[in-house]
Write a protein that binds this DNA or RNA. Structure first.
Lengths: 302, 302
DNA sequence: CTCCATTGGGTACCGTGTAAGCAGTTATGG
DNA sequence: CCATAACTGCTTACACGGTACCCAATGGAG
């Protein structure tokens, strides 16, 4: 209930104006969490474990991050920052998008747990925003924004879907504690049984005839990627665009919350009552912080 | 420990040979769990909650299912069974795949929690196998198994990616307890701030100019789907068929397609062959027009 | 009939995220 | 200079999660 006024992790200030120097930082916590998740999976990155990693108490983390979900969001955005698109757009859209696709996939493979953390929603994190700037600029000279969004979502969809496939097998293997070969060996009886039943001819054909699944993942990926890029190339020159829409804009007026409780002067949300009955002016610690900073910056007495 | 010999849920027999009649069934439990997950999200489908739903004790479920993860797998496979592909393949591959895509997306929208449950790995469940049989048979007459796998993974990747986007917003809204309008209103200050900062021109352009994001999701989906199907169509009619995965250099060969075939001077894509065999310079009318416009603006003779 | 594998149910354990209150630490007002 | 407010990291405590283990009841096999 507390701190509900911040829509995002990104809207919430990291450091307060006064008081002792924080011993840690969001970046440090995020880094530790990523280290653990890389090694043992996202579910191993519990609050206690992360805190132990940096030598803090479990609850201390909540001084920096309002909840674990928010921490995961921080982690996800940090990951987006790993995709290096320096110099993009270069003028060669195909090369640029190949680089983007490779970078995105490589990031997924380095951090298999993104499959769990990823929300497919705009998180508005700084790294994601920077990435959007680069990638969206690639097709901008050729097509409309709407078309750019559509085409790039096809590309990103392909990359993430491919990466998800690679990653989930790796995760399965990791979780089972077996090697990849052992995993395959364990599953083969079932597969053989399915094939021998004769009920699944296409499945059997895949198992018996297909060479793709046994192929180098890199080549598999690259082949599909070329197909997708061919698709984009065709679309870049296609007549017309997406269907004509009409709708109101995303940026709407601020919410009109109606509550009878005293309103927080910073965010306007209802001020929660404390158990002690001590009157509060702000709805949360964070809002109080913000008010102080604002007062300091503006020199306002109140 | 005791049940390690079973690789899968599917390998484990549901009912023992002897003893009292079980009071419940896997199907019944799965159904109840799906009902709860549909209404309140996958995280609400706890063992205790599911058991309560069917009037059993929490631990009783473990007589039917070895773990919650396995139950989730049962649920996921049940969902695959909802995709009706009766009569597929019909001979019209494009219609078949459209039906598959629509069915897959509709299933996702009915059960938003698949985004969490889905593992992108072959689970070898009966419904998934049946689905594979139908879908893989669609392109089987035209291309190799390997090509079928590649192309269909592009399609499935697009559909799931699109559905994941729609669903995750819906889930976000559901979890926050707000209406979609309220959610947007809550986020708009941050968006506005980002736009007004001037640091993110492409993002701003999306917010201020794009109409797609506010478009009917169905239309958005269908537009991208047509693009993907166009891509498949191009691959199906590629000269000489798909590259042979056994060929170690098939990757570069796939890349060379654009240079081997005459390339469109505007977009760089391969110029498609016409049914009449009439030679073309540009890959489409739009590219020709674009080249014409450019020529006029720059005054270039060619 | 007896036997006993299997049933559904209950209790208990450990690990999770996190709310609330604690004793120190620091910046600020007087 | 001090008193104090605001903040720090930490500890305790709680509700809830999956599930290991034990139980009496049940009903088919012999």
């Amino acid at each position: 209930m507390a701190d509900t006024e911040y829509v995002n992790i990104w809207m919430r200030p990291e450091r307060p104006a006064r008081g002792p120097r924080p011993a840690y930082s969001r970046a440090q916590i995020t880094e530790a969490a990523i280290r653990i998740a890389d090694a043992e999976g996202l579910e191993a990155a519990t609050m206690r474990r992360i805190a132990a990693e940096i030598g803090a108490g479990a609850m201390s983390l909540y001084r920096y991050v309002p909840s674990r979900d928010d921490l995961v969001e921080l982690m996800a955005d940090r990951l987006q920052g790993e995709i290096d698109l320096e110099g993009v757009p270069s003028g060669d859209w195909r090369a640029d998008l190949t680089r983007y696709a490779d970078g995105l996939r490589a990031m997924w493979l380095r951090h298999p747990w993104v499959a769990t953390a990823h929300r497919s929603l705009p998180g508005f994190g700084p790294n994601q925003l920077r990435l959007i700037e680069r990638v969206m600029a690639v097709l901008d000279p050729y097509v409309s924004i709407d078309e750019s969004l559509s085409l790039l979502s096809i590309l990103t969809g392909y990359v993430e879907s491919a990466a998800r496939g690679e990653v989930s097998q790796a995760e399965e293997v990791r979780r089972s504690g077996l090697t990849a070969a052992e995993w395959m060996a364990r599953h083969s009886p079932h597969v053989r049984q399915l094939v021998e039943s004769g009920e699944y001819p296409m499945f059997s054909k895949i198992v018996l005839e297909a060479r793709q699944p046994h192929l180098n993942h890199d080549d598999q990926f690259r082949y599909g990627l070329e197909r997708v890029l061919d698709c984009l190339a065709a679309a870049l020159s296609a007549p017309g665009g997406p269907p004509d829409p009409r709708d109101e804009t995303f940026v709407t007026r601020a919410g009109d919350e109606t509550t009878d409780a005293p309103a927080c002067p910073v965010c306007g949300a209802a001020v929660p009552e404390t158990a002690t009955g001590r009157p509060r002016k702000y709805c949360s610690r964070a809002c109080r912080q913000r008010a102080y900073r604002t007062r300091q910056e503006t020199g306002s007495p109140e």
